[in-house]
Design a protein around this nucleic acid. Sequence first.
RNA 1: GGCGGGAUAGCUCAGUAGGUUAGAGCGUCGGAUUCAUAACCCGGAGGUCAUGAGUUCAAUUCUCAUUCCCGCUACCA
Length: 687
Amino acid sequence: MESENKQFKRYLVTTALPYANGPVHIGHLAGVYIPADTYVRYLRMKGEEVLFVGGSDEHGVPITIKAEKEGCTPQDIVDRYHGIIKKSFEELGISYDIYSRTSSAMHHETAAEFFKKLHADGKFIEKESEQYFDPERQKFLSDRYIVGTCPKCGAEGAYGDQCEKCGSSLSPDELINPHSQLSGAALVKKPTKHWYLPLDQYEPWLREWILEGHKEWKTNVYGQVKSWIDSGLQPRAVTRDLDWGVPVPVEGADGKVLYVWFDAPIGYISNTKELCEKTGDNWERWWKDQDTKMVHFIGKDNIVFHCIIFPCMLKAYGDGYILPENVPANEFLNLENDKISTSRNWAIWLHEYLEEFPGKQDVLRYVLTANAPETKDNNFTWKDYQDRNNNELLAIFGNFVNRILVLTHKFYEGAVPAVANLTEADQAVIDEMNGYPKKIGTLIENYKFREALQELMNLGRLGNKYLTDNEPWKQIKTDPERVKTVMAVSLQIVAKLAILSEPFLPFSAHKLQAMIGMEGMKWADAENTILLPEGKMLNKPELLFEKIEDSVVEAQLKKLEEIKKANELNAWKPAAVKQTVSFDDYMKVDVRVGTILECCKVPKADKLLQFLIDDGMKKRTIVSGIAKYYTELEKLVGKQVCFVANFEPRKLKGVVSEGMILSAEDKDGRLVLLTPSDLVAPGCSVG
RNA sequence: GGCGGGAUAGCUCAGUAGGUUAGAGCGUCGGAUUCAUAACCCGGAGGUCAUGAGUUCAAUUCUCAUUCCCGCUACCA
């Protein structure tokens, strides 16, 4: 099963489908799209047959929510973001053979067919469960459409999966007074049928295929897959009650669509078909031929889907579908020491970058490759961006090219001189430079893009050193014959750079190739010593990179600073006042003061503290989710707190809690216990 | 809390199937140079390899515990 030695006839390369509810940012690029594009460009230059497939993931609940919020249709949302994403990828030079979308007709057809066959072959199990139903709209609601009062912070408008006020994750059953976000109607529970893929049945096969057969996968990927398999796989629902997506194509499935994780990876197949239909190619040779090598480029949050679930789907389908040979998942990129976040607008958006930094695609590609999160989360800073541009890309690569071309025009009016009478040192340099194509290529084939780029720069360093060692600007006065050889050798290095930089820096590579009159070179060509023959006329040199000034970086930092400020201002206004309640209703709640007698952490729970409270009559146990904010527990003993005395007891992590301790939630989410300003008798009521 | 990944020079990262002085790039300091976008080239300084134990003749590398960061997942009457 080891693929190390196997020779493949063609490569199918996929990139995680970006979710079309927002634009693409530098985290996506560094983790997925730039490494994938570098890989693909390299393979093409090697003369391999490659298909590079991408597309937008356009189904799922968040898109429908966003549409609801903005008062438009889901299709409007995905049209907008698909447009932005596709265009920005093109401008960055991500060289897809096809970038399509899961709302396409071809995808709907393909995904439906895929489901139908699995269904017909009995690969699913069917289960019925009780779900919330909106009687007015006559449909089942997904978690996100169910709103109610947050059981934790009491905020109105908490969603069935999460309260945005306090950030706690919820299940619809926990919500107080659940009702429909669509109609406002109170919800009822009704049984609904769904189809499940029994992943557990594929466990022995997964073990064999990955744990035995793919020990070469990256540690983060292998480790996570192993832990999933070892802890026992569960059947996973492949359908949902929703009206946005691919309708479930069997009888009795009205109002149901394919679950987005089931539908999205099939998009790789649909998009392949869409392309092949246009070009007259046979799509099956890409997906059903053991001589095709499939590689999925993804981020670490996607490992399970691409290593376990999608392979199980393909395996269940059978019919010769191939499996990925590798899934080089990357870690995450931070921005200025803070997690990138779409909702907090903490990101550098690709489409904005392209607008603000015209012609600087390669700078971004360079920086994100040089600092790619290949083994651990990395940090992007604008200072680093500037340094890498000014001190590496420009100073080593751009500068070397420029010095050579300027000298060639100065000494020889732009005509390449001949290599003659090589010294030992010349030969050593030639040998070294001829080794780079292989060195860099091997690194790329092993997904070590950062190191590969480093080696490319080392070729530039080799050139700079050779030049300094031989000082042609001095020798031209004393030994012009010798200078011809030095310049000729240097020019071959420039030519090599023009070829080998193409996977990483396609725009600059093409610019350089045009300057020295080289076109359509293959990777293997770079192994030849003489790429620019004697007498060849070079075009006028232009600068490949320009210096990035402090002011540019400062402007970007200021922009981020403002986002941070705006976030602080927006995030914390007091919550809207809740619905009016009657005095009688209020009096039903019995709030009292109690004295803390004991306090300890609840085992195996991060957030829970267990209190023993003197309520004036007895000792009662109350569990409260404030462990994060109170670490010195001994200091709490003796303090008085307010608590709800007449809640039904409830079991939390095995401990029965008899009430709820009241605390205030500060704007940063911190919980602060409420304590009477003077000592009072335990058990006295608060009102 | 469970599982996975990570913690190495001022910064961003490599690395060690355990073995004399732990690497690279950038930054910094010094030198040399002027063909080149004040870029290049040479040299120096800079690390108790997160913390604490254990195994070993020997641990940054293996084992265990702890702390912190990231992802998945559980708990917040």
